[in-house]
Design a protein around this nucleic acid. Structure first.
Length: 699
DNA sequence: GCGTGTGGGGTTTTT
DNA sequence: CCCCACACGC
């Protein structure tokens, strides 16, 4: 990209007061505009602390913070809506009758709590009902419907308030509460409203098309006084409607904020025209859409490769093969390569194919480090150190290690506690042996005493220890490693993760001005996604949802088959199909130079092979942008190459015992006979190997 | 009453 | 493939 801003970008950057909407098409230099504008505000003498930037993901927030620091050497507040909510509620939630030292429950925790509610109401354990109600509660909160407002659905009207009460008894909030309760706070407390309306005088909302009603209301309330809202987004990239997002929010911006200035960025600086026009053509199939056409000055570029494999195995082989080719021929770094899929489950085959060729990869998203069992176990102990009320953490830790307290006993204890702080109740129960009608046997009483002893001992040690020492203490006090050894299969992995947690805690302490256990726990609760610790170049595997905001020179979009992408759950809903199409659009527009669209004829899904049909999205892309690469035509090429089997040719893939898979760069007669120059992409090294010594094999 | 083993069922996307 | 419910044996 040239250094100068284009006129549209310039006018967005120069805007100072009042509402501004930037309709930023994919690759149109949005990030540049955002950071330049913040820099400009600071140059105008506006204090960094007057500026708030709200992003959609932690990663985006981190990045923005870094950019601002690099550009202006100042700290500005950049966070997600959820962490903004946590910050506000931490200060002010007492005005809603909650306690300020609440803990935050993740998906798994809140699901467990909800399950308790369903049991209590003696609701039949119908499959899927749990998930369904969980989703219903989440939607209600995102739509700002409170537990007391449900009328039409008798079952839900029972469960939702019970769940909300239990959360409160646990002194816990779920993710959606971070938004929902923030809005309630703003509605119910004039003081709080005033306080936060005056705290940030310039507010930036990124990915505005993905805001749900709760987030939208928070944003609107925060700027209600000064109207200095700077919203950035692209309706064509709205992909979170299942989380309550309303892309209409971006279309209504001008009526919500009269006098708003609107800037459209439609020059794409990222992709070549084949890729961009194909994506344009695809998104034009959405009926429900504001027309906008991106253009690029980067030339035609190479065509999009359309590959059809026999099955997912072949698809993955194709991808790995092409990665080799591009690394060798175009000198693309592994960091510039990504594979996008619709569902996390698809990553497996690609991992296998890359692993066997020793191509370094990292998975973005997926099961996060902090969602692993061993990490959650330790964190739950930490939560018990600070909380008497956290029922879910109690249930998680009570049998680590086994203490002779079984499900029946626990259930009785919880029932007898009647919503009072669970740990305090246990302390009393253990010392008296009998409370509210529960009487413990000797073994159980000893077990409970032991548990209480562990928690108390950790609480006593806490003041003298810093965070990572405290975590080590949790591990030793609970004999956690011997507990892990009960499953020898996973022991090594889990132990490494525990060590890593201690390491991360130590690292985190270094960075913080005033590290505290509570702060640490809060931050971890909100970091649900895997952070990619860079260790050498690697190709990135991720879901399409995770790909938003990123760009790569070489992109593979895989699994383009009906019922997978678009997903089967969307097939009967035209709105949902349009969202799938936007998702495809997002994926395609991540590619700078090379794009492949892959699909298979058969795919193994839950146990059996299924015949797949090509995704409708493939047919919606004009053939002029595509180059067909079916598996049969590739096989023919390989067969033709067979006569050269005794020697390899430049471009051939080979396997070396020690160095793994490589690509032949040159073949020539050297002093030891036939000699090859081979590039080994996983290490990035090129080696000269004599054919008669280095027994190179075909992959 | 407790803990372990097994079998069956369910799997979109994320803060 | 992973999680949970259920049943069985201690």
């Amino acid at each position: 990209m040239s250094n100068a801003l284009n006129p549209a970008q310039q006018s967005a950057v120069e805007h100072v007061e009042g509402p501004l909407l930037v309709l930023a098409g994919a690759g149109s230099g949005k990030t540049r505009v955002v950071t330049h504008r913040i820099a400009r505000l600071i140059d105008l003498g506006i204090l960094p602390s007057d500026i708030l930037a709200v992003t959609f993901t932690n990663k985006a927030a981190d990045e923005m913070r870094t950019r601002i620091r690099t550009l202006k050497n100042v700290q500005a507040l950049a966070c997600t809506f959820h962490s903004l909510g946590a910050r506000i509620l931490r200060e002010s939630i007492h005005e809603l009758g909650y306690k300020n030292d609440f803990t935050i429950y993740d998906e798994e925790d809140s699901e467990k709590l909800l399950k308790g509610c369903l049991n209590q109401l003696q609701l039949s354990e119908e499959k899927g009902i749990l998930k369904q109600i969980r989703h219903q509660i989440s939607s209600a909160k995102n739509d700002l419907v409170g537990p007391e407002e449900v009328k039409d659905d008798p079952l839900f009207a029972q469960v939702y308030p019970l769940y909300q009460n239990k959360l409160k008894e646990c002194n816990a909030l779920d993710f959606d509460d971070l938004l929902y309760l923030t809005v309630r706070l703003f509605k119910e407390s004039e003081r709080a409203r005033n306080e936060y309306q005056n705290r940030w005088l310039f507010v930036l909302i990124d990915e505005y098309q993905d805001t749900n009603l709760a987030q939208y209301t928070i944003a609107k309330t925060l700027v209600d006084r000064h109207k200095n809202i700077f919203a950035v987004g692209d309706p064509d990239q709205s992909i979170y409607s299942w989380r309550g997002a309303r892309y209409q929010n971006i279309l209504n911006f001008e009526s919500d904020f009269p006098g708003a200035k609107v800037v459209t960025l439609d020059q794409n600086y990222r992709s070549t025209n084949c890729i961009l026009q194909a994506a344009n053509a695809l998104i034009c199939h959405n009926a429900n859409r504001y027309d906008k056409k991106l253009w690029s000055a980067l030339g035609e570029g190479s065509k999009i490769g359309a590959y059809v494999g026999q099955n997912e195995r072949e698809e993955a082989e194709f991808v790995a093969h092409k990665i080799f080719k591009h690394v060798a021929d175009d000198h693309i770094s592994l960091n510039e390569i990504a594979v996008f899929y619709r569902t996390n489950a698809q990553s497996r085959t690609f991992e296998d194919a890359l692993l066997s060729r020793r191509i370094a990869y990292s998975i973005i998203g997926g099961l996060s480090f902090y969602q692993r069992k061993e990490i959650k176990d330790i964190l739950s102990f930490l939560k018990m150190i600070v909380s008497n009320t956290d029922l879910i953490s109690f249930l998680r830790t009570i049998h680590i290690p086994k203490r002779g307290l079984g499900a029946a006993t626990i259930e009785k204890i919880v029932e007898a506690a009647q919503g009072s702080p669970i740990f305090s109740f246990c302390e009393e129960l253990a010392s008296r042996g009998e409370m509210n009608g529960v009487k413990l046997g000797n073994r159980q009483r000893e077990g409970l005493k032991d548990y209480i002893h562990v928690v108390r001992s950790l609480r006593n040690k806490r003041p003298g220890l810093n965070l990572h020492e405290l975590i080590s203490e949790v591990v030793s006090e609970t004999r956690y490693l011997s507990y892990l050894q009960e499953d020898p299969e996973s022991f090594q992995d889990r132990k490494e993760n525990v060590d890593e947690l201690i390491g991360k805690a130590a690292e985190w302490e270094e960075e913080q001005m005033a590290p505290s256990l509570n702060h640490f726990l809060e931050e971890l609760s909100l970091r649900t996604n895997q952070e990619n610790r860079e260790q050498g170049p690697s190709i990135k595997l991720m879901t399409l949802h995770n790909s938003k905001g990123l760009e790569f020179k070489l992109v593979f979009l895989v699994g383009l088959e009906e019922d997978l992408f678009p997903h089967v759950n969307s097939k009967d809903d035209p709105q949902a199909i349009e969202e799938e199409r936007r998702l495809c659009y997002v994926g395609m527009t991540r590619a700078k130079r090379h794009l492949y669209l892959c699909s298979t004829i058969y795919r193994y899904m839950w146990g059996s092979a299924r015949m797949m049909r090509p995704s409708r999205f493939l047919k919606e892309i004009p053939t002029q942008y595509l180059q067909s690469l079916s598996s049969s035509s590739l096989r023919k090429v390989e067969v033709e190459e067979e006569p050269h089997a005794e020697g390899f040719m430049p471009g051939d893939e080979v396997v070396h015992k020690e160095f793994g898979t490589g690509v032949i760069q040159k073949a020539y007669q050297g002093s030891f006979g036939l000699t090859y120059e081979v590039l080994f992409p996983h290490s990035g090294t090129t080696r000269t190997l004599a054919a008669k010594y280095a027994k190179l094999q075909s992959p």
